[in-house]
Design a protein around this nucleic acid. Structure first.
Length: 504
RNA sequence: UCCGGCGUAGCUCAAUGGUAGAGCGUCUGGCUGUUAACCAGAAUGUUACAGGUUCGAGCCCUGUCGCCGGAGCCA
């Protein structure tokens, strides 16, 4: 149709700066209000939404505009003008319109959809405003993590994804055929990082990890991305300070760059503003005392009573919404009431589930025995007591991995920490000082039933210039779930792999 | 693997064991500087699959499959 070259193409985000200028937009049709003598096109280009006006006097462009379907690809030229009635305060008066492809009936509407449908259409769902907000925040988290380590003299080390089996926890390893012999997808790069930190001092890895855990929960992916720093000549304190610094830096970066995206997600920015050092600290033994103590019982019982009140209120609201939906004359008002009813039903189900499991969780916490690892519900109970992340340190050695350093002053525990995100989100980081003494390490391996000959190269690191060192691993998707205030980890990765889904 | 829930139009959901429906989307027409536009009309179904009970099954029973949530395990 029209000639669209000859004037600069603009990002919609920058549109307001081009008032009076002639620009080219390249994008997709997000919405249309059409007919009569004027068509309003809402165009998206990945940076924002722009209202573009086509008038009937422009016959060619008008005919093309009237025929456009949702998500049709297009380029257009026009003049930017200030317009109070347009979202964003500016609109484009269209002069020429070229349709690259008229989209077929688009499966994803701008109304409510179920999770299964959306994840089946993940390749298209990514275009939704909420999803692009998440993708942008994910990018910032990755970028902030890299910047944090780069600024502190760390070297990026890419650890292998195909790894030989190492005797422990075989059931959560994915097996791959490697020229006729089994090999496994990596679950952590830590052992390799320990090697690299003895070469470079401060290193980190950033890559995908794989866990064949048969966990169908909102916290689990079978493929997720992990950041793992490792530093030589470091003891536990230094590693914890690093974790604290990294988490605050990431939260600050998201807060600084994504006010709009957080708002689009319905996330209260104040929750991120609270993420400042120092984070509270508990030892494992203190955590156990808290779990078993009367205050936990009191808090949980009052929490349950709050939940019951909430449940009743939501159920009443649900009845109103359902009645409104049934009585609504206008289509979209019915849709709106149904959407609200749907959300309320989900909330009600969630509250009922909480109330069902809470007594169980309370009983587990109250009867917690020193020596076990903290369970998911225990972490939730602990993290709900704080408004910022909390460190839990010095776990019993039998509950933790063989490579963690035994605390010299108390050999029942190891020099490790978990960092629990607040608001019930739970563990986002696990870290430790590593055992650098060869005899102690060998003894720990035997105690866990591991064969030292399987770890021969790793043990070399204790034979040739061993030093105190340590590090941690942080799961990017869990951090995003927390920072964005989501219910599910699945939305934080572009193409999630869960136990029940590998498509698309 | 175990426990619980769900499966009806492209989507979101209705339908005492008794004629399968609504809204959105799609298509057609009208109308308007519109803001999830509006108005009128049309098309759209192996009720997940396989058996069973019944005069009659979307609904009850059995099995299978799929999805969701939880437990164990974990970042």
């Amino acid at each position: 149709m029209g000639e669209t070259t000859g004037c600069p193409s603009a990002d919609i985000r920058e549109l307001i700066r081009h008032i009076g200028a002639r620009v080219t937009l390249r994008g997709w049709l997000y919405g249309k209000r059409a007919g009569g003598k004027v068509v309003f096109l809402v165009v998206r280009d990945g940076t924002g939404l722009a209202q573009c006006v086509v008038e009937a006097s422009n016959a060619a462009a008008f005919a093309a505009a009237e025929d456009l379907s949702q998500e049709s690809s297009l380029t257009l030229t026009g003049t930017v003008r200030a317009e109070a009635r347009a979202p964003g305060g500016a609109e484009v008066a269209v002069e020429t319109l070229d349709v690259l492809q008229r989209a077929e009936a688009y499966p994803i509407g701008r109304k409510a959809h179920g999770a299964d449908f959306l994840f089946s259409h993940r390749h298209l769902w990514l275009r939704a405003p909420r999803q692009t907000a998440l993708l942008r925040i994910r990018h910032t988290v990755v970028q902030a993590v890299r910047a944090f380590f780069d600024e502190r003299g760390f070297t990026l080390i890419d650890t292998p994804i195909l790894v030989p089996g190492v005797g422990e926890d075989r059931q959560s390893l994915f097996t791959v055929d490697y020229f006729g012999a089994p090999i496994y997808l990596t679950q952590t790069g830590q052992l390799y990082l320990e090697s690299a930190c003895l070469a470079l001092g401060k290193v980190y890895s950033f890559g995908p990890t794989f866990r064949a855990e048969k966990s169908k929960t909102r916290r689990h992916l079978t493929e997720f991305w992990m950041v793992e720093p490792e530093i030589a000549f470091a003891e536990l304190e230094e590693v914890m300070a690093l974790a604290e610094g990294m988490v605050t830096a990431v939260a600050a970066a998201v807060l600084a760059r994504h006010r709009d995206d957080l708002a689009a997600l319905g996330r209260d920015a104040a929750a991120l503003a609270r993420i400042v050092a120092p984070f509270p600290r508990l030892t494992y033994s203190e955590a156990v005392d808290i779990l078993r103590g009367p205050e936990t019982r009191a808090r949980m019982e009052s929490g349950m009573s709050d939940s019951r009140t909430q449940l009743q209120a939501r159920m009443d609201e649900l009845k109103v919404a359902e009645a409104e939906a049934a009585a609504a004359r206008k289509g979209w008002k019915q849709e709106q009431a149904e959407t609200r009813a749907r959300e309320l039903r989900e909330t009600v189900q969630e509250l009922e589930r909480e109330l069902r499991v809470a007594p169980e969780h309370l009983a587990l916490a109250q009867s917690f025995e020193w020596g076990k690892d903290l369970g998911g519900s225990d972490e939730t109970i602990l993290s709900r007591r704080f408004d910022r992340p909390v460190f839990v340190t010095e776990y019993p050695r039998e509950a933790k991995a063989f490579y963690m350093k035994v605390k010299p002053e108390d050999p029942r525990v190891v020099c490790n920490f978990d960092l629990l995100a607040p608001e019930g989100y739970g563990e986002i980081i696990g870290g430790s000082q590593r055992e650098e003494r060869l005899p102690v390490l060998l003894e720990a391996m035997r105690a866990k039933g591991l064969r030292p000959e399987d770890y021969d190269w790793y043990l070399d690191l204790r034979r040739y210039g061993s030093v105190p060192h340590g590090g941690f691993g942080l799961g990017i998707e869990r951090v995003l779930t927390w920072l964005c205030g989501l219910q599910h980890v699945r939305e934080t990765i572009p193409f999630p792999r869960t136990m029940g889904r590998v498509q698309p």
